[in-house]
Amino acid sequence: MLKIDIGINENDRTNVAEGLKKLLADTYTLYLQTHNFHWNVTGPQFRELHLMFEEHYNELATAVDDIAERIRTLGVHAPGTYKAFAALSSIEEVEGVPPAEKMVELLTHGHEQVVKTARQVLKTAQDAADESTISLVSDRMRVHEKTAWMLRSTLRQ
């Protein structure tokens, strides 16, 4: 493979990619959790939540691909196993099938955690003057912040 010459030195590319690996792991874990809840949600809000979760996991599936491809663009291999994601993710897996309201709460916290992970990657990308990663991560933050707000809004006050 040819040497990568995109105006970001190798050390900075590696540091950004390591942060993106964590963002990828959080995003993939949240994707799996959302898909699981889509399949297993029950209760009076079934239809609304089932459809909302489907929208969310479809969006997350696209995001996973975008993040992994950015890691590859930086010249680093993207993680792609459950074991790797479990080691890198800040989002804990959920055992069993929680009630619908708990699902919404868990997903809200998951989206908020992805935002926090993204903020860490953003700082690294800014230090490296990596505008492409900054744009990707900033867009991801906006999506997760809005999704967390929408999920929170379905919960009883």
Score class of each variant (00 low, 15 high):
T147V: 14
Q45K: 14
R140H: 09
V94N: 01
H111T: 11
I134W: 00
R72K: 09
A125M: 05
W149H: 07
A87Y: 04
Y31E: 13
M103K: 03
V41G: 03
Q126P: 04
M103Q: 15
V115R: 00
H111E: 15
S135G: 07
Y57T: 04
Y57G: 04
W149I: 10
T42N: 06
K146L: 15
L151H: 09
Y82F: 14
E54C: 04
R70W: 15
L151I: 06
R152T: 11
D127N: 09
W39L: 06
K102M: 08
L20Q: 04
F53V: 01
V137E: 04
V121D: 12
N11F: 11
K146I: 15
Q33S: 11
I6H: 10
S132F: 11
L23G: 08
R156H: 09
L24F: 05
N40D: 08
P99F: 14
E101F: 09
S153N: 14
R70D: 13
M103W: 15
F46I: 07
T117E: 12
E93L: 05
L155P: 13
T124P: 11
D65Q: 03
L106S: 06
W39Y: 09
S153F: 13
S90W: 00
T34L: 01
E95T: 11
L30S: 02
H109K: 11
A63W: 10
R70G: 12
L88C: 07
A87W: 01
A129E: 12
S135H: 06
F37S: 03
T29W: 01
M141G: 03
E54L: 01
E145V: 07
P44M: 03
S153A: 15
M141H: 01
A148F: 13
V143S: 11
V114S: 08
H35G: 01
E105I: 08
Q126W: 07
G19P: 07
L51C: 02
H35T: 03
E112C: 07
Q33W: 04
D66M: 12
V121C: 11
S153W: 10
L49K: 12
T27D: 01
Y28R: 05
H77M: 05
M103T: 06
F46Q: 05
Y31S: 05
M52N: 10
Q33H: 09
I134S: 01
F37R: 04
K21T: 08
A100I: 06
L155I: 10
T81V: 03
V104G: 03
L88K: 06
H111V: 07
F46E: 12
F37D: 05
G75H: 04
N15G: 05
V41F: 11
I71A: 01
N15V: 06
G43N: 02
A125G: 03
R156C: 02
T27P: 00
L23I: 02
V94K: 02
T29V: 13
L51W: 02
V104L: 08
I91V: 15
Y82W: 05
L30I: 09
Q45C: 07
A61F: 15
I91T: 13
D66G: 00
G75S: 06
L107I: 13
R152A: 13
Q33I: 13
